[in-house]
């Protein structure tokens, strides 16, 4: 079924063998297929980086834009044609570093889009510098004495901003990752999924084994509607919670708030300006 999203042209994947990105790609294609999405009305928007190449390997519409800038693009696509399913997908450097400000404001706007962040705690494409989520002490060719700033906690931040859907997945577990993605895509409103993704070439600390030892799945005792509990879980750094941490329901989406769609549900490309309206506007300028 997932073949529906397999590229129909020969592709030369630019990822290292063993990279967590392969699992995320597999999980995404099967999630989309299981949800019955069709490639023609789906758009994947990405930035720049190794993770950002993902849409190149999916048979669908894509907008592979600038480093850090996927969220404004995705927000605008959804606002221009609310009938499309829109996914923004990129690395932790792209989403949390270069594009950090856009993330804050995308959470506030709450467009009905899904954001998948391949979080490998390192810059892959530029060969191994620290990312905003790199752990203290992580050494790189630039951070030669080790990272000495506190890693960013994107989930606690998003929950703090009342993001409507916040989850974390681990690329090493394709099944669970697919299920979390399905929930995120089906969720109405802004859905953030931070996906722990081992980078076998530049991150020798946070390996498949490390994630297995440092993560646990949330069970039925966690209520995603309980924001305080979600925040507490998101703040834990001794062991990292996987699953859906937080859901805030009842927030209107960005598209729903736009005057443009009040009384007119047509996507923007179906609209034409009427000269009568322009003339009327000008009549007011005659005094």
């Amino acid at each position: 079924m997932a073949e529906r999203f397999d590229p129909d042209h020969p592709i030369d994947i630019a990822w290292c063998p063993g990279c967590g990105n392969y699992h995320i790609l597999a999980a995404l294609k099967s999630a989309l297929a299981e949800l019955g999405k069709d490639p023609e009305s789906l758009v994947i928007v990405s930035g720049i980086g190794q993770a950002a190449k993902t849409p190149q390997y999916v048979r669908t519409n894509f907008f592979n834009g600038l480093h850090g800038r996927s969220l404004p693009v995705a927000t605008a696509i959804k606002a221009t044609n609310p009938g499309l399913t829109v996914i923004a997908e990129s690395g932790d450097g792209c989403m949390y570093g270069e594009g950090g400000n856009h993330l804050l404001h995308a959470v506030r706007r709450n467009p009905d889009i899904t954001v998948l962040v391949h979080n490998n705690m390192v810059y892959g494409l530029t060969k191994g510098q620290a990312s905003p989520t790199s752990m203290r002490g992580f050494t790189t060719p630039v951070q030669v004495s080790g990272v000495c700033v506190e890693p960013m906690n994107p989930l606690a931040m998003a929950i703090g901003l009342s993001a409507s859907f916040v989850a974390r997945a681990f690329a090493g577990d394709i099944e669970q990752t697919r299920e979390i993605m399905k929930q995120a895509i089906t969720h109405k409103g802004f859905a953030l999924v931070d996906i722990f993704q081992p980078c076998v070439s530049f991150n020798r600390v946070n390996t498949y084994q490390w994630y297995k030892e440092h993560c646990f799945y949330l069970d039925g005792s966690h209520d995603p509607a309980d924001r305080d509990a979600a925040f507490r879980v998101a703040s834990r750094t001794d062991s990292y919670a996987l699953g859906v941490l937080s859901i805030v329901s009842g927030i209107p989406t960005f598209e729903e708030c736009l005057d443009a769609y009040r009384g007119d549900t047509r996507p923007l490309h179906e609209r034409r300006v009427s000269s009568g309206k322009i003339e009327k506007l000008m009549d007011d300028k005659r005094g």
Binding site: R69, V73, T75, A76, T80, N81, L84, H105
Partner: peptide, 25 residues
């Protein structure tokens, strides 16, 4: 029937405009 958005910065504003054209705006 216009979408008007005050972006968080000009970088966002310009990228939004490109996203909109891409989707038919």
């Amino acid at each position: 029937g216009l979408v008007v958005e005050q972006a968080e910065d000009e970088i966002s504003a310009a990228n939004m405009a490109l996203g909109s054209w891409y989707a038919g705006g």
